[in-house]
């Protein structure tokens, strides 16, 4: 089975800090990591390969340094890394990213299953997975929390919904996006790290893709950021301690005054 995992390199969010003077993100020295949701996708791909055999190819679109994310995936156990990189892709929104990644995946030959993390933790859009499915005309299931069965031609999965889950069967080739509940990603082994260090990363440029140049990068992107700003922080309100009955009165009256309890 040929499995493709789409990943993104993102800043490790816990370290993202806001400059109080300028109100912008300080990205100084912020370590770039594999998007945490994509680690679940990589892990699931490896588990499927361990079960049914095959190859796990990891694909990312990004600047040259995004190569490190591919190496991290190979260290976990992925087989091959593909970096789709070109100046022409700069400024891509989710539409143009989906277009570029789907065009890149077309160059990888037979693909049976594409796995994406449910969203990236920097943009939080959850739009590129479904975008790729649409552009490759593949069946698709989002929010997969468990793979129940997989054969060469179908996969049966559990899709997480608000009130529970749906059991969905999808023919292959197809695409799924996975949620955190699906597995616990393994740590890279020493052997894996060694392999990742020396692995060849395949680079794909715009010229290697059969694409409409007008649909790439900033120009091909329907959406633009008009402005960005730091949200007003809720500043802590009143903080009380002391005797329980007095605090209960306080909470009770506060909730009552909000008018939310019917």
């Amino acid at each position: 089975m040929n499995i493709v995992v789409c990943i993104k390199q993102v800043p490790g969010t816990t370290q993202v800090k806001i400059n109080p003077e300028t109100g912008t993100l300080i990205r100084d020295g912020v370590e770039a990591v594999v998007n945490p949701f994509d680690e679940y996708a990589i892990e699931e791909a490896i588990r499927i390969r361990e079960k049914v055999g095959g190859v796990v190819k990891v694909v990312t679109m990004g600047p040259p340094q995004a190569e490190n994310a591919l190496r991290s995936a190979i260290a976990m156990g992925a087989d091959e890394g593909y970096l789709i990189t070109d100046r022409a892709f700069a400024g891509s929104d989710t539409w143009a990213t989906s277009y570029t990644l789907s065009s890149g995946i077309k160059t990888l030959g037979q693909v049976d299953l594409i796995i994406c993390g449910k969203q990236a933790i920097d943009g939080d859009t959850a739009q590129v997975g479904p975008g790729i499915a649409e552009m490759l005309n593949l069946p698709y299931v989002a929010w997969v929390r468990k793979v129940e069965e997989i054969t060469a031609t179908t996969i049966k999965v559990e899709r997480l919904m608000e009130e529970g889950y749906d059991v969905v069967e999808m023919p292959l080739p197809g695409l799924m996006t996975v949620v955190k509940e699906i597995n616990t990603p393994r740590m890279a082994s020493l052997k894996g790290k060694m392999k990742a260090k020396s692995a060849t990363i395949n680079t794909i440029n715009a010229s290697a893709l059969s694409v409409d140049a007008d649909k790439l990068g900033l120009k091909g992107s329907p959406t633009q950021v008009l402005r960005s700003f730091v949200p007003e922080r809720k500043s802590g309100g009143e903080k009380i301690s002391g005797e329980v009955p007095a605090m209960i009165d306080k909470i009770y009256n506060t909730i009552y005054d909000l008018g939310v309890v019917k």
């Binding site: 969010t13 993202v16 806001i18 993100l25 933790i121 920097d122 943009g123 939080d124 329907p222 959406t223 633009q224 950021v225 008009l226 402005r227 960005s228 700003f229 730091v230 949200p231």
Partner: peptide, 12 residues
Amino acid sequence: AFGGNLMATIIC
């Protein structure tokens, strides 16, 4: 975006 640390206004 960024887990609520940044707000962005987007247009099309």
